[in-house]
Design a protein around this nucleic acid. Structure first.
Length: 193
DNA sequence: GCCTGGATTATC
DNA sequence: ATAATCCAGGCA
């Protein structure tokens, strides 16, 4: 039997979870539940964005109107529109001023999906995460420590695979850093390497 | 103000 | 391989 959203709420991650560095949080998130209201998915893929020096990160511009939440304390959502089409869900990490975040790139259906998970052979990636969980820019800057959008402990730490982040080839040497993490062998991961 | 180019995805 | 679609950030 699958857990209910109420049950998951009991395991809500706290401030100490999010105020660690982005790599630690990105790894720790794999296997956790991402809950939004009646729906939840198991996080199976993440990417760490390290701060202003990370040329693949929105934080590279310094504090701007869009990204300022990244420079706050960990535990808040950063949601933005990419390519004019897709909403990207990120979780701010680290202490105030760090400018770090973790992008959630893939979840596997857990609760609140009426039909059995539609054939997910196609349609992968971070844009699908927000679609599946009905997350959009209205959730930008939402506090994950309170309210109906949060992360909760769920599965024991699975075997984690590591590789370069996706779609950041413009970032030079930062594009080659192995800052993408995924549940090894999980079918819902957007790509295997 | 104008211009460039995306932390993407579905389809050709 | 490429269209879709829009807005942030840089520069004038």
């Amino acid at each position: 039997m699958s857990p209910t959203a109420d049950l998951l709420a009991a395991g809500r991650c706290d401030e100490a979870f999010y105020t660690r560095d982005a790599v630690t949080v990105a790894r720790a998130l794999i296997g956790c539940a991402l809950v939004h209201g009646p729906r939840a998915g198991v996080i199976v893929e993440t990417e760490a964005y390290l701060g202003p020096e990370d040329l693949a990160s929105h934080a590279r511009f310094g504090v701007t109107a869009r990204n300022s939440v990244m420079y706050g304390r960990g535990g808040f959502a950063y949601v933005y529109l990419c390519y004019g089409i897709h909403e990207m869900f990120n979780i701010v990490t680290g202490p105030e001023g760090a400018g770090q975040a973790v992008l959630v790139r893939a979840v596997a259906p857990l609760v609140g999906f009426g039909a059995p998970p539609a054939d997910d052979a196609v349609g992968r990636g971070p844009g699908k995460v927000t679609r599946a969980l009905a997350i959009d820019r209205r959730h930008d800057r939402r506090d994950l420590l309170a309210g109906d959008l949060f992360v909760a402990a769920h599965a024991d730490a699975p075997r984690i695979a590591v590789g370069p982040r996706v779609g950041v080839d413009y970032a030079g040497r930062w594009a080659r850093r192995r800052l993408r993490f995924w549940w090894h062998g999980h079918a819902a991961v957007s790509r295997t390497r």
